[in-house]
């Protein structure tokens, strides 16, 4: 059996089926929804960081822009929710296109510039001068489209598409070329790879999934403020979940989200600063002791991890 089919049958399909039926047996709908959103975001980070090596410190910029794309479609154009979600994806891609020049920067420069870009979008959206369009810092309320069950299913669909994209990257010459570019862009060009095109495509793909996720999040919660949907925690959680499991794999980010977000909710911290403390220590420990993620425990023993 070709490995792409194997990955689809044994990773993608079970994940999507379980998440699709879980709301029927488990009460905490919001928690499940957050799981799906973080799975999408962690895989989005996987696409851009795992396969191309760009660390998107401002990944939440696409998510927040998507949420506001959804809100503006609904508030000003009375668009139906599904159309508004698609618009959120388009907003993600447009912001991604606008930021493509950042791909000229490498390493830390890219990470910081991307962070700055997300903060710039936040301050733009939250600016009182734009109140007539975005409602500025006062937040939006979209009760007309409120429908958590449909939003949840849309999130599962986006997750399926995102994981399918990662399965494709893991099994295609496109994905292999991306990893070659990540390792050494000059040698990659000398292997005939169109370095710029590859990077831009991966960047736009990860912008698209974050934009879609943001739109669906807006649909689900229906009332939010700029600080909610542009919260740096989305970027950081997504990056840490992906890293903890292991990037450039299909399963790594999934395992990362299930374990870390699972622990987060099991412990259920009421005081965020204790969580932040444990989280910070976890990040430091991860970098110092397990820089290639949980999957490296297996790969070090010579086991293959999809």
């Amino acid at each position: 059996m070709p490995s792409a089919l194997k990955h689809t049958l044994f990773i993608l399909a079970p994940l999507v089926i379980v998440l699709a039926v879980l709301p029927g047996v488990y009460q905490n709908h919001l928690l499940l929804f957050n799981f799906v959103i973080f799975l999408v975001l962690a895989q989005g980070v996987n696409i851009i960081y795992g396969f191309t090596g760009y660390l998107p410190f401002g990944y939440v910029g696409f998510f927040g822009a998507g949420a506001y794309g959804f809100a503006i479609m609904v508030m000003h154009l009375q668009a139906p929710a599904l159309l508004a979600v698609l618009a959120a994806g388009v907003v993600g891609i447009l912001l991604g296109l606008l930021l493509t020049p950042l791909l000229r920067l490498s390493g830390a420069y890219f990470a910081i510039a991307n962070l700055a870009a997300s903060l710039a979008v936040l301050h733009l959206v939250a600016n009182p001068a734009l109140e007539s369009i975005t409602k500025g810092p006062y937040g939006v309320s979209l009760t007309g489209t409120f429908n958590p069950n449909s939003a949840y299913m849309a999130a599962v669909v986006v997750l399926a598409l995102t994981v399918a994209a990662v399965v494709y990257l893991k099994n295609s010459s496109f994905g292999l070329a991306l990893q070659a570019v990540r390792e050494d862009s000059v040698s990659a060009a000398m292997a005939g790879v169109n370095v710029v095109k590859m990077r831009v495509l991966a960047w736009l793909a990860s912008a698209l999934v974050a934009g879609l996720a943001g739109g669906i999040y807006a649909w689900y919660v229906s009332v939010f403020y700029p600080d909610n949907v542009f919260s740096g925690e989305f970027s950081i959680f997504a990056i840490v979940f992906a890293l903890f499991g292991g990037v450039a794999t299909i399963t790594g980010p999934i395992v990362g989200v299930i374990i870390l977000y699972g622990i987060y909710n099991l412990i259920g911290f009421t005081t965020p600063q204790y969580f932040q403390l444990i989280y910070g220590l976890l990040i430091m420990g991860l970098v110092l002791f397990l820089p290639a993620g949980l999957v490296s425990l297996a790969t070090r023993r010579g086991w293959h991890v999809p």
Partner: peptide, 19 residues
């Protein structure tokens, strides 16, 4: 400057499919 984390086979495969 090979693609360090890719296998030898994958290194050649990239060039073969994009050359």
């Amino acid at each position: 400057k090979p693609f360090m984390s890719l296998t030898v086979r994958e290194n050649v495969q990239v060039a073969l499919s994009h050359g």
